[in-house]
Amino acid sequence: MEKLKMKDVSLTYQSLSGETKALEDITFSVSDGEFIAIVGPSGCGKTTILSLVSGLIAPSEGEIFINGEPVRKPNGKVGYMLQRDQLFEWRTIESNVILGLEICKKATRENKEYARELLEKYGLGDFKKSFPNELSGGMRQRAALIRTLSFRPEILLLDEAFSALDFQTRLAVCDDVYDIIKKEKKTALLVTHDISEAVSMADKIIVLSQRPAKIKNIYTPDLPVVSPLKRREEPTFSKWFDIIWKEVSK
């Protein structure tokens, strides 16, 4: 089933000094349960795609569909994970996790129970009453993921979600997040500048060009569906890294 579809999407930013064309004719679709990575040179407008999908900004041309319905404004259908975990320091982990439910006015007892179950299931049960500053970076990122899962979004958007972590933690958190996303059978769109991260996690990799960003190529690496760490050990991993890297820097 087609979860997300971008059809001939272009975006032009207006500013006093002129117009900047950020995206040009972006067309791709994501099917249910797929993990897509978007890579490209820095500043090419990768994050803009996520803002479009979440409905925070409207495309200048073209349309975006989630489950066949056009996206017009933010409506709680996407779960956004940002570079920093953005947990609210004054809320406990439990109350951070139900933030999305409160915003969507879906904070019913069953939904809250679901959020608590997710916390238990993914090892944060003992930290329900803790505050974010009492958790390690990896655990905070996991709490942030559960926060986005708790209101059952259609699509997860990960915007450089791991790049604020140190390398060691980052590998572990990647594994962790990937595992949770697959277990919960979520569709995910990852934006990253880290090619090895993209190759280790994604089913499909979209390579964007310099600004104005066009789709240069879409790759489907023939790598086994295993955890990111395992994938990094695959013999063909470096081949795919090389292909994508050359495509990005071409």
């Binding site: 925070l56 956004y80 933030l99 999305g100 915003i103 209101f151």
Partner: peptide, 23 residues
Amino acid sequence: GKILLLQSMGANKFQILIKLILP
């Protein structure tokens, strides 16, 4: 980033005020 997060969840201005800005 926190404002962006709330907006992506579909928060309106009043919710942003109550949930984020004031606390």
